[in-house]
Computed example of a mutant assay.
Amino acid sequence: MKQRLLSVLCVTAAAVAATACSTQGQVDPDVMQIATTPLTCSSKAECDLWWQRAQTWVANNSKYKIEAATSTLIQTAGPDGGKRALAYQITRTQNPDGTATIGFAAHCDGSLGCKPNPWEAGADFKQYVRGTPAGTQGTDAKPAQPASAAAHPALHPDMQQGQSVTPSTGEAVSQ
């Protein structure tokens, strides 16, 4: 009887794991396109605004506390062992042509994947920072309104293209 119960539990666990794996790799192509499009600002004023928005987005969306917020880095604590919540690292790199690129990295430590999905978080982050309404793909859109400076002081802009997103499998993906 114990052997049969153990066998049923093993089969059930395998089925749950297979189901989790089969749904984790599916990312909407539109979300993927938004998440992988570089976030490059073109002027100091735009870069400052986008950097301020980046910090606001992380503060509003991270389950972890912001540990570092400088003119070139926004980083949260985490990820905690076994947790599905995303930890974030946002970078700002000055480009030789005077523009700056804001990079996005998200990762978790959950064996069942991350929540939210890192690709969706990356797309949402980029839309928010650009001021693009969710569901649109205007990668050249300028931010519509500044984030509250009282809640999150503006930081200096400087970022480079690189971005890293951790898919729900827990493996880092660079874009």
Score class of each variant (00 low, 15 high):
residue 3 Q to F: 03
residue 4 R to G: 08
residue 4 R to F: 11
residue 5 L to E: 15
residue 5 L to N: 10
residue 6 L to H: 13
residue 6 L to R: 14
residue 7 S to Y: 03
residue 9 L to D: 07
residue 14 A to P: 00
residue 15 A to V: 15
residue 18 A to V: 11
residue 19 T to M: 06
residue 20 A to S: 14
residue 20 A to N: 13
residue 21 C to S: 14
residue 21 C to P: 07
residue 25 G to E: 06
residue 33 Q to Y: 08
residue 33 Q to G: 01
residue 33 Q to C: 03
residue 34 I to Y: 04
residue 35 A to I: 05
residue 35 A to H: 03
residue 39 L to E: 01
residue 42 S to T: 15
residue 46 E to G: 05
residue 48 D to R: 12
residue 48 D to L: 10
residue 48 D to S: 11
residue 49 L to K: 01
residue 49 L to V: 04
residue 50 W to V: 06
residue 51 W to I: 00
residue 55 Q to F: 07
residue 58 V to C: 02
residue 59 A to M: 03
residue 60 N to D: 11
residue 62 S to K: 04
residue 62 S to L: 01
residue 64 Y to W: 03
residue 66 I to N: 01
residue 68 A to N: 08
residue 69 A to K: 05
residue 69 A to V: 05
residue 77 A to F: 06
residue 79 P to S: 04
residue 80 D to K: 11
residue 83 K to V: 15
residue 83 K to G: 09
residue 87 A to I: 08
residue 89 Q to E: 15
residue 90 I to M: 02
residue 92 R to P: 00
residue 95 N to K: 06
residue 100 A to G: 12
residue 100 A to N: 08
residue 102 I to A: 00
residue 102 I to D: 00
residue 103 G to Y: 06
residue 105 A to V: 13
residue 105 A to M: 12
residue 106 A to Q: 06
residue 108 C to E: 04
residue 108 C to G: 14
residue 108 C to N: 12
residue 109 D to I: 00
residue 109 D to C: 02
residue 113 G to V: 01
residue 113 G to C: 04
residue 116 P to L: 04
residue 116 P to I: 02
residue 123 A to Y: 07
residue 126 K to S: 08
residue 128 Y to T: 09
residue 129 V to M: 04
residue 129 V to C: 02
residue 130 R to V: 00
residue 131 G to C: 03
residue 133 P to A: 06
residue 134 A to Q: 14
residue 134 A to E: 15
residue 135 G to Y: 03
residue 136 T to D: 09
residue 138 G to H: 07
residue 139 T to A: 13
residue 139 T to Y: 14
residue 140 D to G: 15
residue 141 A to V: 07
residue 144 A to P: 03
residue 144 A to I: 09
residue 145 Q to E: 11
residue 146 P to L: 07
residue 146 P to N: 12
residue 149 A to W: 04
residue 150 A to V: 15
residue 151 A to N: 08
residue 151 A to D: 11
residue 152 H to C: 08
residue 154 A to F: 03
residue 154 A to S: 09
residue 154 A to V: 13
residue 155 L to T: 11
residue 156 H to L: 11
residue 156 H to I: 10
residue 159 M to P: 15
residue 159 M to C: 13
residue 160 Q to R: 13
residue 160 Q to T: 14
residue 162 G to P: 13
residue 164 S to Q: 13
residue 165 V to P: 01
residue 167 P to I: 07
residue 168 S to C: 11
residue 168 S to A: 11
residue 169 T to M: 07
residue 169 T to Q: 10
residue 171 E to S: 07
residue 171 E to D: 14
residue 172 A to Q: 14
residue 174 S to C: 14
